[in-house]
């Protein structure tokens, strides 16, 4: 995902000298292309995320579109107030990019697990929150947020995420992509866990269930129409995210669903249930431990399906 992001951003920035990239001293080997080809549009702010975000707001207020780049919680939680006051409140075109959403940096330990970022970022006013599901969505999302006014958060995986979409996609910020229709269950996934959701859907289909699947790449603003459609057509809505079950995609869908007139669908939120992960392991291993592998998603969905 990160390679697709930087490839796309370099492409955009070559044609628009007002597009800037600031890193908080991370991106070894990844940012080289941008750095060498567009040195005037590249800044390494050093290990100083608060200043990085304040700088970005200042540059944006002078007409730049500024991407801030770091990993895990550094470009978000470490400088949350700069994002809130300096960027969002001023409608500044600051585009915050976090590499390593969820357990992408699993083995590095809890400092590097970005597992509450969606909840915290989407609680801010005047921000767009996007978590693309695969590299194809990453490229489209990068182009889309670059054109959007104001502050955006782009939550990416790391590297090597599989392609879910084959070929062109219709990508609009705030509009979910429906990959499959289905009348029993609707799975709504956000971020790099999309592939596990696709695999889980296959398994559920093999078990005789008719399952819809949405990639909810934009968590804010949330696509209420897609949720209303899912609530109309399916009996069970399942949200899947590599993130805490508190306040993320599941929370956002719950807020919408609970206020939807006449909605009958039951909601199951699949995500990280409680506490910090102190288990050491890579992304796949931790997904397995915490119920986010395709297999665990299937098990969890079946359990809920049986009791409704």
């Amino acid at each position: 995902m990160r390679d697709e992001f930087i490839r796309t951003l370099t492409d955009i920035a070559k044609n628009n000298r007002n597009v800037m990239l600031i890193t908080g001293d991370l991106g070894f080997g990844v940012l080289t292309k941008f750095w060498t080809e567009l040195p005037a549009q590249f800044v390494n702010a050093g290990v100083a995320e608060q200043n990085m975000t304040g700088l970005a707001a200042g540059m944006a207020l002078e007409g730049k579109t500024v991407f801030t780049y770091s990993i895990a919680n550094f470009p978000t939680l470490r400088c949350l107030e700069q994002i809130r006051n300096d960027a969002c409140y001023h409608g500044a075109a600051v585009k915050i990019v976090a590499i390593g959403g969820g357990f992408a940096y699993g083995s590095l330990g809890i400092t590097h697990h970005a597992t509450e970022d969606i909840a915290i970022m989407r609680a801010l006013p005047d921000i767009t929150v996007v978590a693309p599901g695969d590299p194809v969505e990453v490229a489209a999302a990068t182009r889309a947020i670059c054109k959007l006014p104001g502050t955006c958060y782009l939550r990416l995986g790391r590297g090597g995420e599989p392609h879910v979409h084959q070929g062109e996609i219709q990508f609009t910020v705030g509009k979910a992509i429906r990959l499959f229709t289905g009348s029993d269950i609707a799975i709504i996934a956000t971020g790099g866990i999309l592939k596990q959701a696709v695999d889980a859907r296959e398994a559920l289909k093999a078990a005789g269930l008719d399952v819809a699947l949405y990639s909810m790449h934009t968590v804010k603003p949330l696509d209420r129409e897609a949720i209303a459609e899912a609530a109309r057509t399916a009996k069970l809505i399942v949200t899947v995210e590599e993130h805490s079950v508190v306040g993320g995609l599941g929370g956002a869908v719950a807020e919408t669903l609970a206020q939807l007139p006449g909605a009958k669908a039951i909601l199951k939120i699949i995500g990280l249930e409680a506490g910090f992960s102190s288990v050491v392991g890579d992304q796949d291993y931790l997904r397995g431990i915490y119920g986010l592998s395709a297999k665990s998603i299937v098990r969890s969905v079946m359990q809920t399906w049986k009791i409704i």
Binding site: M20, V43, Q50, N51, T53, G54, L55, A56, A57, G58, M59, A60, L61, E62, G63, K64, V66, E81, Q82, N85, D86
Partner: peptide, 13 residues
Amino acid sequence: GHGLSVGTGMAYA
């Protein structure tokens, strides 16, 4: 502690 960073960004741009 916010103003100087933003001002620095403005000066840079």
